[in-house]
Design a protein around this nucleic acid. Sequence first.
DNA 1: AATGTAATTGATAATGATTATCATTTTTGA
DNA 2: TCAAAAATGATAATCATTATCAATTACATT
Lengths: 141, 141
Amino acid sequence: MDQLIKEKMDQGGYKMTRQRQVILEVMQASRGEHLTAEEVLSAARQKAPNLGIATVYRTLERMASLDILYKTRFDEGKHRYELADESSHHHHHVQCLSCGRIFELEENLLNDIERQIEQQGFSVVNHRLTIYAVCPKCNQS
Amino acid sequence: MDQLIKEKMDQGGYKMTRQRQVILEVMQASRGEHLTAEEVLSAARQKAPNLGIATVYRTLERMASLDILYKTRFDEGKHRYELADESSHHHHHVQCLSCGRIFELEENLLNDIERQIEQQGFSVVNHRLTIYAVCPKCNQS
DNA sequence: AATGTAATTGATAATGATTATCATTTTTGA
DNA sequence: TCAAAAATGATAATCATTATCAATTACATT
């Protein structure tokens, strides 16, 4: 799977430099989490202390354009990135209003809705569903 | 209905000043549209040429907190505001990727999904669904 | 009507996330 | 080895939004 990513970078015309490798490792180590650029930076600096924030932004942006990462914006003022796991297409999230954690939802839940919209003459390209809730753990306390 | 809004402002401890009146009129004149603060400013300046952007932000923010307006953030870097029409609760949108216009969806489309999540121990508070599509008009050209 | 207090306003500085710029460094291929 | 291209890090610029603050306006009371 690492090989697949390198191929994608190659096809995009991007080299696998040390800093890009480190950033990728951070994303892989936090599979299922949604990280901001700042969060990626501080994690990556443990392995590459001189890494600059500009490189983080550039790298995340490029990897998102190659579908190596997903780029999402919740109702905050900043973007979050997450490893694009081939097995779990999503864009569906539940965000806990208490602890802020973000959970994934299964795909295919929106098929009916999209079918209705297509009948009205739209061509659906993508969608984003975010549900705001209190998660089970926070519900207990 | 204007009366209801004035009562809400009153209860929130806000006076109906000239500038707030003008901003409200802009929002009412564009029922069903989703405006940014800048867009509200430029429309409102036709009636109140000295209006400042800070007042626009403050007013929109307050009206949103009183549920006079809805505040939403699409995948852009800025917020959009829209008149909260009692009859059409929503938070469901279709945004045309070609012309950028935003269309409303009917409520209740998500009930099944939310029910499933509740069964897992979450307490659903709110949700946001945005579908990205090409609208019928743009599809023709 | 005059006055004092609180609310509001507009200009502008400050902030936070992101993007652009640019000189320096690194990589790569002839 | 060397020149050209790509990448990096520091930092300036940008854009939306929020904070600050002095000046204005509105309100309640005399």
